[in-house]
Design a protein around this nucleic acid. Sequence first.
DNA 1: AAGCATAGTCATCGATGTTGAATTTCTCGG
DNA 2: CCGAGAAATTCAACATCGATGACTATGCTT
Lengths: 205, 205
Amino acid sequence: MTMLERVTTRPGGRRPGATRTRVDILAAAQQSFAEHGYVLTTIRGVARAAGVDPALVLQFFGSKDGLFDAALRDDPPVRSLVSLAGEGDPSDLGARLAARYLELWEDPHTGPRMLAVIRAAAAAPSASAMVTAFMTDAVMLPLARAIGADQAELRATLTGAYLFGVATARYVLRVEPLAVLDRQAAVAYVAPVVQHHLTGDLTPP
Amino acid sequence: MTMLERVTTRPGGRRPGATRTRVDILAAAQQSFAEHGYVLTTIRGVARAAGVDPALVLQFFGSKDGLFDAALRDDPPVRSLVSLAGEGDPSDLGARLAARYLELWEDPHTGPRMLAVIRAAAAAPSASAMVTAFMTDAVMLPLARAIGADQAELRATLTGAYLFGVATARYVLRVEPLAVLDRQAAVAYVAPVVQHHLTGDLTPP
DNA sequence: AAGCATAGTCATCGATGTTGAATTTCTCGG
DNA sequence: CCGAGAAATTCAACATCGATGACTATGCTT
């Protein structure tokens, strides 16, 4: 009743060999957050998908919010937008930024991750921090600074707020007719407003 | 062990006299949703504040989402914006709409309720329906129709998306410097863009 | 007075995020 | 090479949550 049974039962303890569980957990979390959103994603479900005990997820990442942060923090897709500032004329940055931003939303790889962040913004502090970072330091502020705009901080937050609103209406709430426009048309409507926020006269007469 | 004890114990049953519990529950829910948001609001907490058993809340409203809907559905503050269309020249509707909208957000009575709706939009279906209704049938579409604009549906959703984005950045995420602007200045920045969406050329050369 | 709808409570269920103790394996200094 | 501490891993349990079903008491209608 002692020694022989020890071989079949596995009551805890470190697994032998190389350890890959942390990466597995992060991959499972990334997929679940993107597919089901923050609220419907459960730590137990992520643990099951990764073949691991739920407590291990929390030992690694501290909390559900910490797991979300670790899964979606590094390499956020929108950061690639920053390079747009140096690739063309500032006078049509609005069009290029709008086009590339909507492309990211419709890309099957990056879109779901951005959706996850916005849907989690109400419940997960780290998600709301990511949205804030998009409107300031991480994306919009570098962009506004790169084209040498005055009032760069204000222009950055206004542009970010506008893009955030459009994306929420079109991709999260799917409000018609904005949601059923093809992308070219949507870009045509959005681009002039982005351009105005970046380089236009913010308070015309 | 039977008849005399019946007097002291209260194992269920309708309360004698007039009934006010339904209103009490709604008031408690309204306050809790506005103060703590959707996720932190608990049915048990609302029941406790209303002096009632938690099961009664669900008997009345079916689910937590149903409770949210019943608490914030009727008389949404933003509906008062519709009347702005008939009160002045369409050429400065952007300024009047922007001013009144931000006023609603900063009003201590209506502001918290609007905050509750936006913060719940990710988790409560009825809340996301309210935001959608704001961008379409309930508010923005009647406004666009009242001034006889072409492409009223598209102008409505674009304007709604913009106002939603600005409000989220300024009042929910509190992104600086947009959040620390005084209201007059914020209106001055927002109004031209609202006007453009309502009456301007949507796709200039 | 009878009967049905309404108001109200209780006990309970399954699921969730989180914690603490216990067990096994790895790593590294002597 | 070995012994100790660090890291990985599991289990059991807790408190809380939304939700359900059975049960009881009051009001309303006829």
